[in-house]
Design a binder for these strands. Structure first.
Lengths: 137, 137
DNA sequence: TCAAACCTTCTCATTGATGTGCAGGTCAAG
DNA sequence: CTTGACCTGCACATCAATGAGAAGGTTTGA
């Protein structure tokens, strides 16, 4: 498929897809006229890239990790070197750390939201902002 | 405490602490000589800022969120506007999404690592890279 | 008291990562 | 021939963070 189709199907701009290619995150064939020609699997790949970037992983890491998660999974074991395995183990651990971090902070926000609701429900049903004056010092 | 102490206790650079103040994330008193004087609570605050930034929240959002998470929690509810609450709910959901995504991808890496180990153990004990030739197409 | 070592201040400039905009040109279909 | 999708390449935008330099405060020990 061409870049416009991929852009539409993944919800990213054409420009960004070229950027990801430049960064080595995705690849493409070229048609005779020079147009990029993407495989079907690129759709999932791009979505995955978006997710990983949004999760805070830098492109450098995604570039390493992504080839190991090709679909269909079973086909490609692709003989990693020991260094690659070590790197992946490291990344896996870092991701676990990151997950914990996110959970802690999300929970803090959640707790706050609960506290706000409670304060609004019991404390000041008439003026929702009345807590401020009492506390703002 | 002065900036060097805070930097040491939070593991951030002095430079970055000044930057956070410039961004409105933390505050400080000034001593007679102009030196910044930080409250004890700043230690936790800075660590939390680090966590939230790492979680992908922009400073603009953290600036909104942070006053809501002051310790001790109970004292300050600080009357968020409805917009802030909505924003926080959005961020909370986005973080949950991110967590799910990270978990999925981390698990994919884990699975891959397991598959690699199995392949190495059973398939080709003599040449660890022999899988590559069979698959690399 | 003096000086060296260290800490702090401010400001301007820069880096690195993730994108976006746009100009100038090519290609293909109506 | 016009329109729209595509190409390359350069510049720009934003955000978080850092570097460097000049000037002044603080501490400590000779």
């Amino acid at each position: 498929m061409r870049i416009g189709t991929l852009a539409e199907r993944t919800g990213t701009s054409r420009r960004l897809l070229r950027y990801y290619e430049e960064q080595g995150l995705i690849g493409s064939q070229r048609s005779a006229n020079g147009y990029r020609d993407y495989a079907e699997s690129c759709v999932d790949k791009v979505i995955q890239i978006r997710g990983l970037l949004d999760a805070g992983l830098p492109t450098r890491v995604i570039r390493e990790v992504l080839p190991c998660m090709d679909t269909p999974r079973a086909i490609r074991i692709s003989a990693p070197t020991e260094e690659t395995v070590a790197l992946l183990e490291g990344e896996r651990d870092r991701m676990t750390e990151r997950i914990r971090f996110l959970e802690r902070n999300r929970d803090a926000i959640s707790e706050y939201l609960v506290a706000v609701r409670e304060a609004q429900a019991e404390g000041a049903p008439q003026t929702p902002n009345s807590a401020e004056a009492a506390v703002s010092a």
